[in-house]
Design a protein around this nucleic acid. Structure first.
Lengths: 356, 356
DNA sequence: GAGATTTATCGAATCGATTCGATCAATCGT
DNA sequence: ACGATTGATCGAATCGATTCGATAAATCTC
């Protein structure tokens, strides 16, 4: 046990009152000395700081401070997946990074909240100043309601528009339309979709009008709609997540039967697209000669050279930043407008005319 | 503006006192009705809940609750990198996932804290119950001191042992030794190291005794030491992070000159190893005929087939879980022992005898 | 030099809940 | 039927800081 520790080792923790008493000033003056705001003479401040050091006082308790100030400095981030899954998607990480970057000035940090579904979880009782929903489905409505009731500002990245929620959007439908149109221009008519998860259970299933109507995956549905504007009846499969293996699983299912094999696959993420590419390679199909593949997102996937995925590049970091700016504005009492971002077509070498 | 909102729209937010007043009970009874602990009759609870609903009260304020209870339910996670970089390493994600899994029961969630170095940041004033340091270097000592002073339990994953900090360790040195020994057994004598970042600046540099002595990257240094037990004079390069590209950069530098080319490369992570593999491919070297490569971690990297990396598989999720259990134990007042985990040798097909 | 203004400090209220001990009524055992 | 026990409810103290308005001292203005 060290020397300086012995002084305060009996009492649980020193508080500002103890420091003030030792320094011979009032609690309010001691508070001023720490917070910096307000007029405190240099000698007084020094006395307070010395007393604090002597008592081994580590500064104002964040809990008390946040109660009084009404701010905790914490931004909640709601991610629907398991952490492990969410972070496998580079898009989520990029958004989080942009968000962290922009909100770093606020003070405390990002609190990861996961929706466990049973409603008893972390979401209801987290001391957050604002909340950002990342890629969340409509089944979060209940949680959203709690935040709204509490008066906590909400920002949603790619979610169904909701009252009092600022949304940061992407041109999912238009971008998917563009990809589909690109394939149509090349002459494709037999096109299949490999979709992001559509329902809360993330089940692998064939796309049906009923599934598309009842699905809760907003992004997935928007992207499907964009494709349907060009190929109204394109078949497809939903996947259990934006992972390469899921793309491979879906790819195998779509491609194995030569009779029903499409000439092009529209994957709803680059990871899924790479998975489809793998499935095609397994089956001995050449890309793009035998099969065209497009993705979405614009990440750089390692190890697919010489292939260069044709895809829509979305500004994920910027979306995160925009969410961060919206949060800051709302905490300042402003009412920021929802923002929409646009994707950029990247012509790679995984698309070409359909085989004869 | 909806009907139920109008009632409370003028006053900022209802509090428990308002609810109690409307319900005709005391504040303490109302509190009991919400917290569930303590005897409250069913009709009284119903009255309170009804009043809460009428006032649009969303439940006890987490800030006030955490002040009174002395617990916020939040576990801080200190990650040294930028978020984007930290999450590119699957090991970090796996540990985080294990941690989240184990601590999920506690209530609130994981607060991501990044060390910006200037000391003014989030770390000092975060309302956390405990803190887990993930892959942090010794330059975090200052921050650690703050937490310790505050009496906040600390758990460190792979860090230099510190007083009052429970550490979750990995057999980095022994595992690296094993890999080096494996190469020595095959007959290699010209072995080079591709190391994780050694210094806070994450500079790419040649390994020198001075750099190794002054480095702050605990894991990197331990793994180097393990190799040095077998190859005392192996040259090497430090990298800017555990990324594939960094491995490629280092690999090119080490392999391009035929005169000084090693017959084996020990990369300190699988991502780096894959990067080296790419560099070797670029240079037309066959693996393992012309060059043996070993990694560390045991992740599955997509897209390197037919190669299967020879590596040490570490139980990353378990490490995260262990950290979570340690946190819970410390919050219960226990003093958990530090834990150490072991890696398992995975013989892939990227090692073989040196070329003649 | 008297009144006006600034500067440093202090007291007390406040943020919103939790919780201990006390009170009062109702049920229990014999 | 009466003292003992149980059960529900309430009052008041408490968690630890922040902040407003007041006070006292010091400086300035004309």
């Amino acid at each position: 046990m060290s020397d300086e520790a012995t002084t305060a080792s009996q009492s649980p923790r020193p508080n500002l009152a103890a420091v003030a008493a030792l320094a011979g000033v009032s609690v309010s003056t001691a508070s001023l000395a720490f917070s910096g705001s307000g007029p405190v003479s240099a000698p007084t401040r020094a006395k307070v700081l010395a007393a604090a050091e002597q008592l081994n006082y580590a500064g104002p308790d964040p809990r008390a401070r946040s109660l009084r100030r009404g701010r905790s400095g914490i931004i909640g981030v709601v991610i629907e997946d398991r952490l492990r899954d969410a972070f496998r998607d580079p898009m989520n990480i990029a958004m989080l990074d942009g968000l962290a970057d922009e909100t770093g000035s606020l003070g405390a940090g990002l609190l990861l909240l996961t929706e466990n579904g049973d409603g008893s979880g972390s979401i209801e009782s987290a001391p957050v100043d604002a909340v950002v929903l990342i890629g969340c489905s409509t089944r979060l409505f209940a949680s959203v309601a709690v935040f709204r009731q509490r008066g906590i500002p909400l920002v949603a990245i790619e979610a169904e528009p909701m009252d009092d929620v600022v949304s940061i959007d992407l041109d999912n439908r238009a971008a998917s339309h563009a990809l589909a149109a690109h394939l149509a221009d090349l002459g494709h008519t037999l096109v299949a979709i490999v979709a992001l998860p559509l329902d809360p259970e993330r089940s692998r299933a064939a796309l049906t009008p009923r599934l598309e109507a009842s699905g809760t995956g907003f992004t997935a549905i928007e992207r499907i709609r964009g494709v349907r504007e060009v190929f109204p009846d394109a078949p497809g499969l939903s996947t259990a997540g934006s992972f390469i293996e899921e793309g491979t699983i879906a790819g195998r299912a779509l491609l194995k039967d030569e009779a029903t094999r499409p000439t092009a696959v529209i994957a709803q993420s680059d990871l899924l697209a790479v998975g489809v590419l793998r499935a095609a390679e397994e089956l001995g199909l050449r890309v793009p000669e035998d099969l065209s593949i497009v993705g979405f997102d614009g990440i750089r996937v390692d190890g697919i050279a010489p292939h260069d995925l044709t895809t829509m590049v979305q500004p994920a970091v910027d979306k995160g930043r925009a969410a961060g700016r919206a949060v800051i504005a709302m905490l300042d009492g402003a009412k920021p407008r929802s923002a929409a971002f646009e994707s950029i077509f990247h012509p790679g070498n995984t698309t070409g005319p359909p085989p004869r």
